[in-house]
C-alpha cells in the first residue's frame, strides 16, 4: 500500500480504465476525506452527504468506464466539481439555501484543538468560538464558502477555484474580502475576541 501514494492519480485512472478495479479503491482512499468533508460542509447531514458522495463516484465510474474522461491530470478537481454540482442539485430539489447550522452531530468549531486543560483557557476558547461562528455566518455566501473551504477544510485556492467554478483570482479575492469584512465587523462592533 505504501507505494500507492506514489502512484499519480492520472496513472491510477488509466489503470482503472484498463480494468484494474483496485486503482479505484486507491483513488477513493486517497481523496475520500477531502471530497466527503466538502460535501458535508454544505449539507451538514451525514446520511445525505454519504448519498451525494456515492452519487459522485457513480458518475465518476460511469464516465471512466465509458471512456468519456478527458481531464487527465486533474482527477481531484474534476471529482470535486461533480460533487459541487450534485450538492447544487440537492438544494435545487429541496428548494432551500445551503446553511451550516450546529447540531448534535456537527459543529464547525468543535474541531478546534485546545491543548490546555485550564478552565480559563477553555472559557476564552468558548467565547472566541461563539463570536467567530456568528461573524463567519454573517459573511456573504460566496465569501463564507471560500473561507470555510480554506480555513476549515484546508483546501488550496486552486482546489477552491475548481470546486466553486470560479477563477483562482476570484477565490483569492473572496477570501481577502471575507477577512476584511470580519475585521471590519469586529472593529465596528467593538467585538472583543480576547479576555
Amino acid at each position: 500500500m505504501a507505494t500507492s501514494y506514489q502512484t499519480p492519480d492520472a496513472l491510477l485512472v488509466k489503470n482503472y480504465i484498463a480494468g484494474d478495479e483496485n486503482a479505484l479503491a486507491l483513488l477513493i482512499n486517497r481523496h475520500q476525506s477531502k471530497i466527503y468533508n466538502f460535501i458535508y460542509s454544505k449539507i451538514a447531514d451525514r446520511d445525505i452527504a454519504d448519498d451525494i458522495f456515492q452519487d459522485t463516484f457513480i458518475k465518476v465510474i460511469k464516465t471512466l468506464k465509458s471512456n468519456s474522461y478527458n481531464e487527465e491530470g486533474k482527477f481531484l478537481p474534476w471529482v470535486m466539481r461533480i460533487a459541487h454540482n450534485l450538492v447544487i442539485d440537492y438544494f435545487r430539489r429541496n428548494n432551500k439555501m445551503s446553511m451550516v447550522r450546529d447540531n448534535d452531530e456537527f459543529s464547525v468549531f468543535a474541531y478546534i484543538k485546545d491543548d490546555s486543560d485550564n478552565v480559563e483557557s477553555k472559557l476564552i476558547q468558548n467565547i472566541i468560538e461563539s463570536d467567530l461562528q456568528k461573524l463567519v455566518s454573517d459573511l456573504p455566501n460566496d465569501q463564507r464558502e471560500v473561507l470555510v473551504m480554506r480555513i476549515y477544510q484546508d483546501m488550496s485556492f486552486n482546489e477552491i477555484a475548481e470546486a466553486t467554478g470560479v477563477s483562482i483570482n476570484t477565490a483569492l479575492g473572496r477570501m481577502r474580502y471575507a477577512l476584511l469584512n470580519l475585521r471590519k465587523t469586529i472593529e465596528k462592533n467593538k467585538i472583543n475576541l480576547s479576555v
Binding site: 479503491a25 466527503y36 468533508n37 451525514r46 454519504d50 456515492q54 474541531y111 484543538k113 480555513i151 476549515y152
Partner: peptide
C-alpha cells in the same frame, strides 16, 4: 485555527461504490 476534519464516508458507502 486550521482544522483538519477527519470525517469519512461510511464503509458501506465505499463498499457499495466498489
Amino acid at each position: 485555527l486550521v482544522i483538519k476534519t477527519k470525517m469519512l464516508p461510511k464503509k458501506e458507502t465505499i463498499n457499495f461504490i466498489l
